[in-house]
């Protein structure tokens, strides 16, 4: 584990209580993700991929262990401190885009900027830049219902990067898209990683998608297995 890791998990334990029985997802999990990495996380359904992203994004809590992001311990932070952490450091991309239906593409992208002290004009430039990065500059005024799934996902990516977060967390971002569209989206993510140096953690069950990443982690029975290139 290098010292300049952006994300570091140490001895993370996480389980859920379902009715009477409790199920353990992770037991003493360790992981380090350096700045500029692009990690694909694969694994069987129910193995804890989404839970991992939730923990990294500060929308779920560990039972034990430490999570450090950009030198800051985020386990044990208050809800408000976590909200500030997310606003400053994390960009989420979901499988079902999760755009606000009553807002235009530009307004959806602008949402995270409402949490910054940026002025209206500055916000507009940021939004325009983000939309340009995902190739949707001409769709600013369109509503989600007027766009295809791939376009909506690109708006979601623009929303995730507009406040320039340190890490992008993508949960099956192409799970709902056809092959060609999926490749477009993955291309966008790859560009973000390669040209803008964004650190990305992407959950996927699609091996083709995982190939866009720099490395792939397999999650199974609460442990990681680094994908052997030969395998």
């Amino acid at each position: 584990m290098s010292d300049h890791a952006l994300v570091r998990l140490e001895g993370v334990t996480k389980g859920f209580v379902k009715g009477q029985e409790s199920i353990a997802i992770f037991k003493a999990l360790d992981l380090a993700i350096p700045t500029g990495d692009f990690v694909a996380v694969m694994g069987p359904s129910g193995s804890g991929k989404t839970t991992l992203l939730n923990l990294l994004g500060g929308i779920d809590h560990v039972d034990a262990g430490a999570i450090t992001v950009a030198g800051q311990r985020i386990d044990g932070l208050s809800e408000n401190a976590l909200a500030r952490y997310r606003a400053a450091n994390v960009g989420f991309v979901f499988q079902f885009y999760n755009l606000m239906p009553m807002l235009t593409a530009a307004q959806n992208v602008e949402l995270p900027l409402l949490l910054t002290p940026l002025k209206k004009a500055q916000r507009r430039t940021h939004v325009e830049t983000a939309l340009a990065v995902v190739g949707l500059a001409d769709r600013a005024k369109h509503y989600p219902r007027e766009m295809s799934g791939g376009q909506q996902q690109r708006v979601a990516i623009a929303r995730a990067i507009v406040s320039d977060p340190k890490i992008l967390l993508c949960d099956e971002p192409t799970g709902d898209l056809d092959r060609a569209t999926a490749d477009e989206i993955l291309g966008v993510l790859q560009t973000l990683n390669r040209e803008l140096g964004k650190t990305i953690v992407m959950v996927t069950h699609d091996p083709a998608a995982a190939r866009y990443a720099k490395r792939t982690l397999h999650l199974d029975k609460g442990q990681f297995f680094e994908k052997d290139l030969a395998a």
Binding site: A83, Y85, A88, V90, N98, P112, L114, L115, R159
Partner: peptide, 16 residues
């Protein structure tokens, strides 16, 4: 509730 969860994931604090 899904949209509210998204807002929170984006970093909107509870008070907001």
């Amino acid at each position: 509730s899904r949209e509210i969860a998204v807002l929170k994931a984006l970093g909107f604090p509870g008070g907001r």
